[in-house]
Design a protein around this nucleic acid. Structure first.
Lengths: 204, 204, 204, 204
DNA sequence: CATGAATGAGTGTTCATTCAT
DNA sequence: TATGAATGAACACTCATTCAT
């Protein structure tokens, strides 16, 4: 029993190290040696906790999402409706260094997933978690009358998710152009839009 | 007289091959040998056209943007205001296979740019091109009364750019969730929003 | 517990292999693979003991001199004055196969040092060791009255060093012309010259 | 006829370029491209004048000696005996930049010859030219009474040749230690020694 | 369980050489 | 004759992985 706890704890130590290395040096810098050095353990040790490098990679992806999800659970515990939605969105956007690191990690996995069926599957599963959460909160807010009843839930959810990743990406790549202030302001505009209801699209 | 070769044409041939390899196999699959094989030339030949792998990489990024920009120029030639904006947005979203390939390429460079000052610089320069184009068309549309005069141009531009990349990303990663139809519908919603003007944000 | 390896011993094993390869095939034949093969280890193993090929090269140069110096120390322990000088000179001339191999190694590094600041520095440091030894013994012999008091120590030292390398070089390149007998005879002539004192130079 | 002249002239142009590259960058820097660039001709041109890189190398060695020999012929034309010997020695020692370049070239070929039967043969042939010249002048001087009749010609010749290369080597490698003044002084000491006759060697 | 030495395939790159023009 | 594009073997080096201790 205590051994199992140690095992899991050691895995997390190694995954933390791996995540730090990826954030600092990218996927190409995340060599076995670099991870081992960052973690303080030997390269041979990794083999006891992960079957190979791909296993480490997918584990990092899962682990990162677990931490993010745990944070949501805590933050959303006492919030409801639009307030919860706002918190959820802002929690998924790189407004501070911790969130920036998470986004860097995400970005690496976006492209990695394109060439790995396993990573893609994980990515999709994890993404559907966020999707479900956003959608649930949107529905809740709509049920509570905070979101206009004409707003289609699915579209609202997709727009929000697109904005989250779009802002995240641009915040990292074009940091001088897209400031935190602008992101927060645009998030609030989106929330106001949900309150007011989407305008009817024109013909084309 | 020696064999005369159109240097620029050969470079493009090689860059096309490189882009195909990256799209198919990712950045890690884009080895010198894979590029050579895909292009039908030998590894040694690459040295005549590029100084090293980094040079190939950054050239691919630049080349891809050149093609995209050339396409805009053509498409936007006869369009103005909102119609031009709609075309520009839809042209930057992976609605067909060609555009999907471009997005895959983009995604690879997003994460590569995080660990390469040179790629980041190129990425920023190219991104500012799109920014300028979107902003110009938005201003034009606003001048023509197609966009509500209360809409802040900068914010509108950033929202659109975020949506473009957010939709692009999700279309590739979560293709079954985010369909082309939905993307087009959401783009039109965004345009309608610009016509109607942003709602006033609530307090927090 | 991991396999425990005597790092220094393994380094010397590899350096010995490297020296053998250089002696046999020259600097251009001393490829990573050739060294690995000669040593019986894999190419990847070299990386554990040397940072790169330049490191191997400079280490070989240093290592070779260490062995030579250790031999002097032993040989000169009980000798003094002219007898010590004679021994020192003869020990630095390729009279047997072992010494021939050392000279071949030396010759390779002479030209390598011309294009490598690091090798040149090592070469100079090691050369000054021999200079100091020769000079010390000459002074000792002069103090003991074995060398004429009019002989300038610096000039005597330089002549001896020049003769050592000149004989070494010619013994290897023109082995049929310059025999061991001749070398020994000329060394003894030089020692006799030191006893007798240099003749006064004529005017020019 | 004029074509043949052109051919030979072109060869020399290329050999000059090759020699400059070797002196500047060593044997490893003397790539086909570097030679072509230095000469101002294309890499393909080299093939018209030399069969391969080895041919270039051995031609450079021969060419360099031809120039040196031509210089001797001129310098020694009006000199005889010890005066001629002194001139010959000083002409073969790197007292000025031109001679330094020649010595650098020599040094490269010393080690190259150890692993190339062809280069070794050339080296020996060329070296015997210098040997013959030195020996001839020594005999002449001895015949004229300038050199003591007890001096063995062969040994005198070998000593001189060893000193020439020893001084040359040390002048390049240990330039701050072995100055031109010292070299000239030691050469004159050697000449004085020839006048005075070698001292009788002691027993060992 | 932990180590780190050892592996050898694979990498980007360079090179002398060939050859169609 | 002169060119320089093209070649592909060879290079130094790195890497994920294995395994005896």
């Amino acid at each position: 029993m205590p051994k199992i706890v140690d095992h899991e704890q050691r895995r997390q130590e190694l995954l933390d190290a791996m995540a730090r290395v990826i954030v600092r040096a990218g996927i190409e810098g995340a060599t076995t040696r670099a991870i081992a050095k960052e973690s303080g353990w030997s390269t041979g040790s990794l083999a006891h906790y992960f079957s190979d490098r791909d296993d480490i990679l997918s584990s990092v992806l899962r682990y990162s999402h677990e931490r993010i999800k745990a944070r949501w659970a805590e933050k959303l515990a006492d919030l409801h409706g639009l307030a919860a939605l706002r918190e959820l969105i802002l929690d998924n956007v790189p407004l501070d260094e911790e969130r920036q690191a998470e986004t860097r990690l995400e970005m690496v996995f976006w492209s990695q997933a394109l060439n790995s069926a396993e990573l893609l599957e994980i990515q999709r599963t994890e993404a559907s978690d966020l999707y479900d959460n956003v959608r649930r909160v949107v529905e809740e807010a709509q049920g509570a009358g905070e979101i206009n009843e004409t707003v289609p839930v699915e579209e609202a959810t997709e727009r929000i998710l697109a904005l989250i990743d779009g802002f995240s990406l641009h915040a990292l790549l074009y940091e001088r152009r897209l400031t935190n202030d602008m992101i927060v302001r645009m998030v609030d505009t989106e929330l106001a839009l949900l309150r007011a209801g989407y305008p009817a699209p024109a013909d084309h």
